[in-house]
Computed example of a mutant assay.
Amino acid sequence: MKGSIWIGAIALAAAGAFTTIAGAAPESIRTETVRFERGASGAVVEDTITGRQIVDYVLRAREGQSMNVSMATDNGANYFNILAPGEGEVALFNGSTSENQFEGVLPRSGDYRIRVYLMPSAARRHEAARYRLEMIVSGPARASGARAGATATAAPSTSGSDADLGRAIRKTLGGDWEANYFDARVDLDGDGTPEVVAMVAGPMVCGTGGCPVLVFTPSPDGLRLVSRISVSRPPVAVSSRSSHGWRNLIVTIGGGGIPSGSAELRFDGRRYPFNPTVPPALAPADLASGEVLIPEFRSFRDGKPLPAAAAE
């Protein structure tokens, strides 16, 4: 079964390795072609599989580009693998050993298959999994005159109210999952206008390694997404140190096989690192040396609820 999906911009990723996977008969795999909207660098897909169902999301990319893929799911036996162009059995990345987080430079041009499946034991029990798969492909090739690191406007207002921020977060994440957020305002770039740092938490936006942190800056058209940081835990702090004119951020990491600690994230002139558990993030970091923006919380429901997704 084949289909085609058109989806819009979003940002995300982790490190991969070459592993083998069990094959599946071609007729048992549903194939969906992912095409980004004009001007978009990424996409989000929400779907459900049951039992032995497998879905391949086919994404065309070029050698040397960076690919970032992450998946949130309500079933701990639900994973994705990535197969390079021309590969049927050998996976570039195996999500069951890497916490469903991939970030890497692509080795060749062609169609990459992001294969979503249930582990055999769960498939035999005919379990179901509801998942949210996020993909981004970036650089080095860009249209003439395009600005590196440009991001889409996330909200239509510059007032910085909770309602504006809630809409910006929902637009960034997509979907209509139950989620809450914890936010703080701090001037990161020294221009006298505070940016917004928000940690989003909920069953379908967090994984075993943590939750996403979003950084927005005000713009004439509204809140603009600067960075999305994956697998983070509270507390989140801001450092007195700066990189490229922006103050460093410090996030707590741990869980999902990740050693507990903290990591310092330096702005590279365009964004903060997506994955705080691998370089260029700096670990360990001195969390106590920073100013806490988002303290620890007991439950995601302690945060502010995200508004429902806007009707199409």
Results as ranks from 00 to 15, higher is better:
Ala155Phe: 13
Thr50Met: 07
Gly104Asp: 06
Pro194Gly: 01
Tyr112Leu: 07
Gly210Tyr: 08
Phe18Thr: 15
Ser41Pro: 11
Ser70Asn: 02
Glu178Cys: 06
Gly110Ala: 05
Ala311Gln: 06
Glu87Lys: 03
Ala9Leu: 02
Leu306Glu: 01
Asn94Met: 08
Gly303Asp: 03
Thr151Arg: 15
Tyr131Ile: 00
Arg60Cys: 05
Leu306Met: 01
Gly256Asp: 00
Asp111His: 03
Ala263Val: 02
Leu282Ala: 10
His126Ile: 06
Ala285Tyr: 06
Leu12Pro: 10
Ile54Thr: 14
Gly257Trp: 01
Met67Val: 13
Gln101Val: 15
Lys304Ser: 08
Asp164His: 01
Thr252Ile: 14
Ala179Met: 03
Trp6Val: 04
Ile49Asn: 04
Ala14His: 09
Met199Pro: 00
Ile82Val: 15
Glu87Pro: 06
Trp177Arg: 14
Ile7Gly: 12
Thr31His: 11
Thr252Val: 08
Asp268Glu: 01
Glu32Ser: 12
Val105Phe: 01
Asp302Val: 00
Gly110Thr: 02
Leu287Thr: 12
Asp47Ser: 07
Trp6Thr: 03
Arg132Met: 03
Ala309Pro: 05
Trp177Val: 12
Ala13Ser: 14
Ala123Pro: 09
Leu306Ser: 01
Ser41Gly: 15
Val213Gln: 08
Leu223Thr: 10
Asp302Ser: 04
Pro218Glu: 08
Val90Phe: 08
Glu46Thr: 08
Phe216Cys: 04
Tyr117His: 08
Leu225Asp: 04
Leu287Met: 14
Arg185Leu: 00
Ala154Met: 13
Leu293Val: 00
Glu63Gln: 15
Asp164Phe: 04
Pro85Ile: 12
Ala285Asn: 04
Gln101His: 08
Gly303Ile: 01
Ser239Pro: 05
Leu165Val: 12
Pro26Gly: 03
Pro107Tyr: 08
Leu133Thr: 01
Leu306Ile: 04
Leu225Phe: 11
Ile49Arg: 04
Asp74Gly: 00
Cys206Glu: 14
Ser243Glu: 07
Ile250Lys: 00
Phe18Val: 15
Gly110Trp: 11
Leu59Gln: 13
Ala237Lys: 14
Thr50Asn: 04
Pro235His: 07
Ser232Tyr: 09
Ile54Gln: 14
Gly104Trp: 00
Tyr131Asn: 10
Phe18Arg: 15
Arg113Pro: 07
Glu127Ser: 04
Ala122Ser: 07
Leu282Asn: 09
Thr277Asn: 10
Ile253Cys: 05
Pro259Tyr: 10
Gly3Val: 13
Glu312Tyr: 07
Thr277Gln: 13
Ser242His: 11
Ser4Trp: 14
Gly269Ala: 02
Gly3Cys: 03
Thr97Phe: 11
Ala163Lys: 10
Val44Trp: 14
Ala198Thr: 02
Arg271Met: 13
Arg241Gln: 13
